[in-house]
Amino acid sequence: MKNHMLELRHVSKSFGGIKAVEDLSISVDQGDIHCLIGPNGAGKTTAFRMITGQYSLTSGKVLFEGKEISGKKAHHIVQSGISMKMQIPGVFEALTIRENLRIAAGNYVRSREMEERIDELIELVHIKDLGNRYVKNLSHGQQQWLEIAMALATNPRLLLLDEPAAGMGPEETAFTGELVKELNKSGLTILFIDHDMDFVKQIAQKVTVMHYGKLFAQGSVEEITHHDGVKQIYLGSV
């Protein structure tokens, strides 16, 4: 059997009596751009939070590079090579861009190389350096990119993006798509959540569809866009 980079095995999560995710199995291969879609409340963000250790699992296992990570604390999981851009709010609004990145890279780069690394990250995601001004003055899109840069600062091998293009205009969305592809080319495996089917088609190679907390369909972009059930529950409702 081939070893997957990330594997969710029969994962479930319930809150009180409500099952948010039920018997979900997903595998993400090295080098892929894999998208998780599904209607609101399908359990996508819950699944992400179980991967990153923010939520404990009710049952099941999560494996990263063949090793079980479920049950570990969030910071251990991040240090083992998985990084995440949250939906909201992700950046430290009351700090400057450089301070944000200095915090993000804190555990992953030597002090001497810090400033150089920050310049590199700013360049990579094309945000303007605001100097002393706080990040809350950045546009929404720029904040999202800054957050991606912060996630990258932890030197991940797997990057989780929760709606990377949410609330962006067409131009910003296109740039985000290019950015994700570029990162992928440089060797990063990416798992992301999104609603916008056009965006998904633009960048994803594999798609997993969730519905009511369960796995609904899994396959290539082609297969999924032509999947009747998916059209009905998800695409049809858009």
Binding site: A74, M86, F92, R102, G106
Partner: peptide, 25 residues
């Protein structure tokens, strides 16, 4: 202005985010 200082700042500003940057808050 050292790493430890920024780590403390991170914990003050947003504990969830800090965890996700690998800090043991």
């Amino acid at each position: 202005h050292r790493k430890f200082g920024y780590a403390m700042l991170s914990v003050r500003e947003n504990r969830t985010r800090s965890e996700l940057l690998g800090y043991d808050t």
